[in-house]
Design a protein around this nucleic acid. Sequence first.
DNA 1: CCGGATCCGTAGAGATACTG
DNA 2: CAGTATCTCTACGGATCCGG
Lengths: 140, 140
Amino acid sequence: MTVSTVTGAASRTVSAEAMCPYRLVLEHVTSRWGVLVLIELLERPHRFSELRRAIGRVSEKGVSEKMLAQTLQTLERDGLVHRDARPVIPPRVDYSLTGLGREAAEQVRTLAEWTHRRMPDVARARQTYDEARTDAVRAS
Amino acid sequence: MTVSTVTGAASRTVSAEAMCPYRLVLEHVTSRWGVLVLIELLERPHRFSELRRAIGRVSEKGVSEKMLAQTLQTLERDGLVHRDARPVIPPRVDYSLTGLGREAAEQVRTLAEWTHRRMPDVARARQTYDEARTDAVRAS
DNA sequence: CCGGATCCGTAGAGATACTG
DNA sequence: CAGTATCTCTACGGATCCGG
């Protein structure tokens, strides 16, 4: 077995984690799919495919199975997500937040809500920026 | 001129932004270098190279000039960062947070501090996870 | 059938070298 | 010093396979 991502990280980070441990966790939490997974799990526990669909609902062209699995593994390893694999057929795996994960998820959700709330301001800023940029090009 | 990143994004996002605008802003804010830039600028305004050095101090193997420029342009376009380019020789450009940027940066910093604080818990969780994983392999 | 693991192709992140 | 052009390489998605 190779487990390029999770275990691979475990061995590579023998040096990488040593230099700046918390930055990596921060990157996991703020990663593209990590953010969405945490927010979604804050609502309620989800099964794998449930999570995939839920994220696809928000992210338009949702997460691939591969990336979802990878993200979940990383978050599980960091102790933010709990994985409950029931040995039944068809297999059923439930994901939920740990106490630690809930703390992180709440912060992330707060940030997401802020972003959503401030969106109009951002849109205005962009328009101004783009117009200035366009004028500059026209002037040349 | 192409301006592959900033202006390129402006045209590509005619469709991309239309589907889910705020997710993109969230990604800018939580992006690898975006996080560090915001936190660093929360301290005080920085010049380009100052910023680069400051981030290199935290991130071990810091940000490349290209990525820093790109990140700053994105954040400027979103109205989070203010760019003050003084027409002198040698060129001097100061970056600072806007009001909007300060709000975002404070949230990001809070999250970063939380991560730092909870690092021991994460480390323990990882150890448990890795050991379980190792045992599973040994059993096979 | 579901939850992944693996292999491979591509686009975008990233470093390096160059310019004003 | 600040920023761009060019090249490299990794992260991500898609298809396929597998074990339960």
